[in-house]
Design a protein around this nucleic acid. Sequence first.
DNA 1: TATTGACATTGACGTAACGTAAAGGTGTAA
DNA 2: TTACACCTTTACGTTACGTCAATGTCAATA
Lengths: 252, 252
Amino acid sequence: MEYTVQKLGRLAGISARTIRYYDEIGILKPARISSSGYRIYGQKEVDLLQQILFYRELGVDLDSIKKIVTAPSFDGAKALREHHIKLLAKREQLDILIKNVEKTIALTEGRIEMTDSEKFEGFKQKLIEENEAKYGKEIKEKYGDDVIDKSNAYLNNMSKEDFDRMNSLSEQVLETLAEAVKTGDPSGPLGQKAADLHKQWISLCWGHYNKEAHANLAQMYVDDERFTAYYDKVQPGAAVFLRDAVKIYTSK
Amino acid sequence: MEYTVQKLGRLAGISARTIRYYDEIGILKPARISSSGYRIYGQKEVDLLQQILFYRELGVDLDSIKKIVTAPSFDGAKALREHHIKLLAKREQLDILIKNVEKTIALTEGRIEMTDSEKFEGFKQKLIEENEAKYGKEIKEKYGDDVIDKSNAYLNNMSKEDFDRMNSLSEQVLETLAEAVKTGDPSGPLGQKAADLHKQWISLCWGHYNKEAHANLAQMYVDDERFTAYYDKVQPGAAVFLRDAVKIYTSK
DNA sequence: TATTGACATTGACGTAACGTAAAGGTGTAA
DNA sequence: TTACACCTTTACGTTACGTCAATGTCAATA
C-alpha cells in the first residue's frame, strides 16, 4: 500500500503538515517522489512512523527520536519492548494521578485530609522512574491479560464518540477486508480479523452482540444487492468472503 | 504554609519559570507580594495550581484553562469529577496503545498479522479525546446530555430489518442532500425531502421523534466539526444546508 | 561584620513542533 | 473543460515555556 501525505496522516491520526515537517527534519523521508513531485510512502515508512509516534507519545523530542531511529544499531523489535515497559510505567503514573483526584474529591467532601505534597502525586516525573525501578518485568506478568481485557471492554462503554468510532471502524472493516480477500482464505488470520472488526462495529451499533444475529447480517450482505454492492466495491467477492469469514468466526 | 516560586515549583514538580509565567498570563497570581518583591503563595493558590495541572495533563491549553478557572461559575468539586472521568478515559486509551505495542511485537515475531490501520490504534484515539476535550463539554452545555446520550442509545433493540432500513435511509439522506445543496434552497422540495428523510432516520435511531430535538441535532451538526466534516464531505456546506432545511421543516 | 551561596526580581531573546496562509501545480471525475 | 480535492514550497505565527543577563535579598557561617 502506498500513501500520499494526507492519506498517511489520516491513517496515523496526524496532519499532513506534520508529515512534511518530519521529512524536512529528516526523521521520516518518503520512499520515493512521484513524477509530479508528490511524496509517496510505503510499508517501511508506515512502520517507522509507528515507531516515531511511540517515542513521541513517551515524551521524547524529535531530535532525539531522529538520532535513535537513524542509528545503524537501531533495533526495532527491541525498541518495541522498551515502549511496552515505558507505557506500562506511564499507566502506573496515571493510576497514581487517578487516585490523587479521587482522594482530592474525598477531601472536598471532608472525608479525609491531605498534605500539599499529596495533592501533586502523579504529576511528578520522578515517581514514574521510581515505579519503573521498583517493578519492571513483573508488571507485564501482572497486567498482561488484564490490559488486553480492558482494551476490549473499552469498545463496549465508550459513549460520546460512538459516531466517530463507528465511522472509523467501518473504514477498518473495509480496509482489512480488502487485504483479506486477496488471501482467499476466510478462515485465515486476516479474514478472521475482518470478522472481528465487523463484530466490534455491530456491537457499537447495536449496543450488544450475539453470534446468530451476526451471522444473519452477514448472510444478508450477500442476499441484499445494495449491501453486496457496498462491500464488493472494495474488492469483487468481498461480501461473500465476509459472510464466510463471519460464519467461521461465529461458529467457533 | 507559604511558598515562594521555587518551593511551590518543587512541591508541584514544575519550574519556577513556569510559575512566573502563570503569574504573567494571569492564570495563577500570588496571594501577596513580600516587602522585597517576592511572590508568596498560600493554600488557595496550591489548590488552584493542582486544578491547573489536572487540566494541563488532560491537554487543555493555558488560555482555555484561564477562562475556565477564572470564570465566576467555576466549581472546583465539579471540575474534579470531570477530571476523574477524563483520566479514566485516558487510561483506556493508554490500554489500547499498550495492546497495540503488544500486537506489534507479536507481528515482528510472525505470530500474527496486522493492518496498517491497526498499527496506529491508540494514537488516533488521542486525537478524538483531544477533540472531545475541546468540544464535547461545550456541546453538552449547549444541548444537554440527552441529545448525545439519545443518539448514543442508538439501537439497543433493533431488528435486522430496522438495521437494514436505517442503513439505506442514511444513504438516502446523503444522496438527497447532495442534490439538494446544489439547488441552494433549503426550503425547496429537495431540501425538505432531505429533512424528512433525516426525520425518518432519527425516528428509527431514537425510537421516537420530536421537533425540538431534531432541530437541536441539526444545529449540532454545524457546531461540532466532526459532524460537519461527515456531512460536508458529500458537499461543502451540506451541514449548514441541512440545519437550515431542518429548521424550516420543524417550524411548520 | 563581611562574605558566600542559594534564592528572588524583571527583561528579553531562544526554541520545539507544528498551524496557517499564500501562490501555484496535479489528478480525475463529471 | 471545469471543478475540486489533492499536492508543492515558502514563510511567518503560536504556545509554553527554557535560558541567559543584570541585579537585589536572605540566612548561615567564618
